[in-house]
Amino acid sequence: MKLSELINIKSGNAICYSGFRHGQSPDTGVFPDYDQVKEDLLILSKNWKYLRLYDCDKQTDLVLDVIRTEKLDFQVMLGAYIGAEVNNHGCPWGGIYAEEQLKENKVRNVKQIEKLITQANQYPDIIFSLSVGNEATVDWTDHYVSVDSVIDYVRMVKKGARQPVTFCENYLPWHSKLKALAEEVDFISIHTYPVWEYKNIHEALEYTRQNYNGVAEKYPHKPVVITEAGWATNSNGRGIEPWNVSEELQEVYYNDLVNWSEQEEVMTFVFEAFDEPWKGSPEPMEPEKHWGLFTVDRKPKKVMQELYPELIEMKKSRV
């Protein structure tokens, strides 16, 4: 089942967007300003119609305001970021919290869901779907939330907003762990990253297809969307071999992915628009920092250079 059978949507490219630049991050509370968000969205409007946003925060408020004020032709999948409600001893980088912190997280999560509903109703012409969390049930997450709790959040959102509701997660948990959740959401959203699973570029698209088809065949009565798929351009060796990432490889995977998605009519949100240096470890080559199709300075990487020659010249003139 295709998403277009559930929602009246037009075809168009989709991308994950977060606008944090040098010195900005959600952790420090330093957010992009209106002009920076406007600059980003004008760049993206040239090639994308659908944006995925992850959090109901100050940045999201600005994005929605810019889209409406500047009359930009975007449709948004809006997410609520839900933090850890349960300790996860299986997280390699720390998923253990004090009980008081877990209780505070639960309160914050409910507020996130409430704001998600509020924004959905405030921007019904812009927000076309809603997600109640991101990678919160997979075994390795540092913000673990029980499946039952996610189901409760789905029901809250469906009661308070009209847009279709989903939950964004790695493809694997949908095969068994999330069966009950799959029946609650309006459509299923999966993440697929061949490069994180040690696949080379020759195996990449086929692996993505297998990930998608495995979930789609299990739930033929539910639309399945890919809400994250991409290829990093740098790595310090942490989880991804440095030889297996580059701008050239990103270009190959992006083109293969987009062509396949168009042919099969699968909505696929490419991860991601811009590099985000605040992510991951302090090491500059940490792969989490290097998934953008554009650098943090808004310079197009190889995959986007033909489409954005004006940005290349603009960056040169500023040097």
Results as ranks from 00 to 15, higher is better:
Ser146Lys: 09
Glu5Gly: 12
Gly94Lys: 10
Leu3Trp: 06
Arg318Thr: 14
Asn134Thr: 07
Leu41Asp: 03
Arg209His: 14
Leu72Gln: 06
Gly160Glu: 08
Glu183Ile: 06
Val132Trp: 03
Thr166Pro: 00
Ser25Tyr: 08
Arg162Thr: 14
Asp55Gly: 00
Ala161Asn: 10
Phe274Lys: 00
Arg162Asp: 15
Pro284Tyr: 11
Val138Trp: 05
Tyr254Pro: 01
Val215Gln: 05
Ser149Trp: 01
Leu257Ile: 02
Ala182Cys: 09
Val138Gly: 03
Ile117Met: 05
Ile7Arg: 02
Glu241His: 15
Lys158Arg: 14
Tyr123Asp: 12
Phe74Asn: 01
Asp297Lys: 08
Ala232Ile: 10
Leu53Asp: 01
Ser261Val: 06
Val258Thr: 14
Leu307Phe: 07
Asn244Tyr: 08
Leu51Ile: 03
Val252Lys: 09
Tyr212Asp: 07
Leu3Ala: 03
Trp93Phe: 15
Asp61Trp: 02
Val86Gln: 05
Pro287Ala: 02
Ile7His: 03
Leu6Val: 06
Thr118Leu: 12
Thr69Met: 10
Gln305Lys: 09
Ala182His: 04
Tyr207Pro: 00
Gln263Thr: 06
Leu178Ile: 03
Gly280Lys: 04
Glu203Met: 04
Ile127Pro: 03
Glu206Asn: 15
Arg155Gln: 15
Ile96Leu: 14
His202Phe: 14
Gln24Pro: 07
Leu172Asp: 06
Asp186Pro: 04
Lys177His: 15
Trp291His: 08
Arg209Ala: 05
Tyr308Ala: 10
Ile190Lys: 00
Leu172Lys: 09
Ala98Tyr: 11
Tyr171Leu: 10
Ala182Arg: 05
Trp196Tyr: 12
Thr208Trp: 09
Ile127Val: 15
Asp65Gly: 00
Glu100Ala: 13
Arg238Ile: 10
Pro223Val: 09
Lys301Gln: 07
Trp291Val: 07
Lys46Asp: 05
Pro284Trp: 11
Arg21Gln: 10
Lys222Glu: 05
Ser4Leu: 08
Trp278Asp: 04
His89Ser: 13
Thr69His: 14
Glu313Ile: 11
Val30Glu: 14
Ser281Pro: 00
Val165Tyr: 00
Ala120Gly: 15
Val145His: 03
Lys289Asp: 13
Glu99Ser: 11
Ala232Glu: 06
Trp174Glu: 05
Asn88Asp: 13
Tyr54His: 03
Thr137Tyr: 02
Trp140Gly: 01
Glu104Gly: 04
Gly133Asp: 04
Glu99Phe: 04
Gln101Pro: 00
Phe74Pro: 01
Ala84His: 07
Val245Lys: 02
Glu286His: 12
Arg209Leu: 13
Pro300Asn: 12
Tyr34Asn: 06
Arg155Met: 14
Thr233Val: 15
